[in-house]
Write a protein that binds this DNA or RNA. Structure first.
Lengths: 205, 205
DNA sequence: AGGAACTCTTGACGACTGTCCAGATCTCCA
DNA sequence: TGGAGATCTGGACAGTCGTCAAGAGTTCCT
């Protein structure tokens, strides 16, 4: 008896979770196109295959939906450069690969990155966003730190920056490149590559 | 005749400009508290001594009002560190003074800085914001460049960064500190100081 | 003193928002 | 196959939004 209802409820839970994820994907697409300030629940529903009422069947309110979206986005992000770390053989190659990877995602995922910066900024005004945003930011910092420490290891040198500083500096470069790229500046991405390659060595002793 | 009407119209123009500026100041206060997404014209008017209708007497629409606000904010910003540049006597002093000044404004003007980052982000979604935002960003870059070149001069060394890279890196540090400070992290401001002091030397040969 | 021009208030408008709910539709087990 | 529960629709709700305009109030010159 318990086995059966467990199986049932698990299936229902899975289906429930699947639809939540599906709706979150639609929401992310709309959010990344319009930004937080201009995205309404009706707009999200219109870009999905459901009506607007269903959003409140799967999410308590707008905040819960957006937070679910942000967390789903996080999972995609934090492992983005792990392969570069795993396959790097020397410091210079890691440096070049990392700069190139930054430029690639800056171009391909531009709207998602711009959404991330938008939502991170919203957390400065909307208290309910803050906790999750800080958690994601922390994991991004750790992701950068894996790159930087691997780079130092391969170079056989010590680091002169803290994890937070390394993340702050590189995030500044990336954000600047994203702005200029989205503004139509064709030099934004090459500049991001060279700036990254010139910055990483400065982290070493 | 022309003289008189000129005098009149100039006085009227001045009064018109004064009231615009006054309304923009109210708007900036409200915007910095609520953020772009949550600020309405009625809210702005309520935090001023006028009714909401007057906003459309002095500004064509919401976009023109906010752009006027941003430009007014710009004038306050770009000369912020000029005195430090003017009075600096050696590189180490400039380094320390600059880090301290960043930490001070990060604390005292926290809500205005958060508004700046909010509006700069909006320009990634709202095309009409872009031009002015890029212009302000450029002047901030030049402001940072004045600091950095003065620092290199006093140190008697050459620079290894472009103006854009120096701005991107330092802006990343500042933004990170602003986030953590507003999130209640008491180490944010001391960390900003030390990180700035440790970063500036990395710009030199 | 009168009147023209400027300034401001007030209320209205249509559109849009998040939320909720009654009921239609679907799924799936007994 | 029937019916219970899960899922989904579409409309209604009370608010808020930007915008506008009619008219009251003010200023200031002749």
């Amino acid at each position: 008896m318990t086995e059966v209802t467990d199986r049932i409820s698990r299936r229902q839970v899975d289906k429930f979770a699947e639809r939540r994820s599906q709706l979150a994907t639609s929401a992310l697409r709309t959010l990344s196109q319009l930004g937080y300030a201009r995205t309404s629940l009706r707009e999200i529903a219109q870009n999905s295959e459901f009506s607007h009422g269903v959003l409140h069947y799967y999410f308590r309110d707008k905040v819960e939906l957006i937070m679910y979206c942000v967390k789903q986005y996080k999972a995609e992000c934090v492992t983005r450069y792990d392969q570069i770390v795993a396959t790097a053989e020397d410091a210079d190659q890691l440096k070049v690969d990392f700069g190139a990877a930054l430029a690639v995602t800056c171009e391909e995922d531009a709207t998602m990155h711009r959404l991330w910066y938008d939502l991170r900024n919203q957390s400065l005004f909307e208290e309910s966003f803050r906790e999750d945003t800080l958690e994601i930011d922390k994991s991004l910092e750790q992701m950068i730190w894996r790159i930087v420490t691997t780079y130092a290891d391969l170079a056989g040198r010590d680091l002169t920056v803290t994890p937070a500083t390394a993340y702050g500096l590189l995030d500044g470069l990336f954000q600047q490149a994203l702005f200029r790229h989205l503004a139509g500046d064709p030099t934004a991405l090459p500049t991001l590559r060279t700036a990254t390659e010139q910055t990483l060595p400065k982290f070493l002793t």
